[in-house]
Write a protein that binds this DNA or RNA. Structure first.
Lengths: 148, 148
DNA sequence: CTACAAGCTCAACTTAACTTGAGGTCAAGC
DNA sequence: GCTTGACCTCAAGTTAAGTTGAGCTTGTAG
């Protein structure tokens, strides 16, 4: 077979809709890999497109690069996901999405309940108390964001 | 009437579950206000607790400090929200929450549909195409995050 | 064979929302 | 009246996910 067409960064960028600088960045983070030409330029196999696609989907679902990286690395041989692997990943990610959705729903319902009550009374407000509990849990550096 | 008890930063921090440094920070951002004692220490009225409560709730809903600040400032006289104001704010924020939820749902359903298809085929995958469209929209600096 | 586009590396900048630290002041208990 | 804990200011650091720019090399089309 003729060797599969290899792609340059520019081509991958164009086809994947990700900036060249982002591809470089992903590479430093170990999310994608490339080999180099004699002239030190990157060349990618076609599988990089799938990898990048997965990265983007996962990001849209609110998964951090670190987590994505971990998920990809957890695959045997660190290979680009096959259909089977993709089943596992997407199922897991869908679950995390589900969780996030139900969290937001809880929040929305809390907000809805609070409309008109005008309470925010520190002791009684359900939304408030959530925060209080969180805060009283420790004095160390607190999380930057809501637990997801 | 005896003057309403005033609170120190430390007390506000303890009662609101927000770090002292965060309160200072909110002040520089104009989210809360304080007056000073002869010795240049901050003193807060009780209403600051409600303000901080609102800030935290809004943040949990995924609203940025900038937006919160704008919302609070949009109130006549920049006052701490009354029950009426709170109705307006929480309704608006609930709507934005609703939007976010339905966006995530769409994403989840896309993910669900894609399970097993293993496609990620750049052309056919609905999730993929979303990204592609975004990318082909311009060559300028691209958004840091998904539009919310 | 010579432009000029596309690549390369590395360092620095960006935004949000704070935290941490240094160096100095204030206040309250004993 | 002194010690200790709470405050103060201001500058710099932190994390995520990239982007931007400078200075230099490759590769390709005419």
């Amino acid at each position: 077979m003729a060797p599969v067409t290899e792609l340059t960064v520019g081509q991958v960028a164009a086809r994947s809709g990700v900036a060249v600088s982002a591809l470089h960045f992903y590479e430093t983070r170990g999310l994608i890999r490339s080999h180099r030409t004699a002239g030190n330029q990157r060349r990618y196999g076609r599988d990089v497109l799938r990898r990048v696609a997965i990265i983007k989907v996962a990001q849209e679902v609110g998964i951090s690069l670190a987590e994505i990286s971990a998920a990809l690395e957890s695959l045997p041989e660190g290979r680009t996901p096959t259909r089977e692997d993709w089943n596992l990943l997407s199922t897991a990610w869908r679950d995390s999405l589900d969780q996030k959705i139900s969290q937001l729903k809880k929040l929305r319902d809390g907000l809805t309940d609070c409309i008109g009550c005008g309470c925010m009374s520190i002791d009684k407000c359900p939304l408030r108390n959530k925060g209080d509990r969180l805060a009283s849990e420790g004095t160390g550096a607190r999380r930057l964001l809501v637990e997801r």
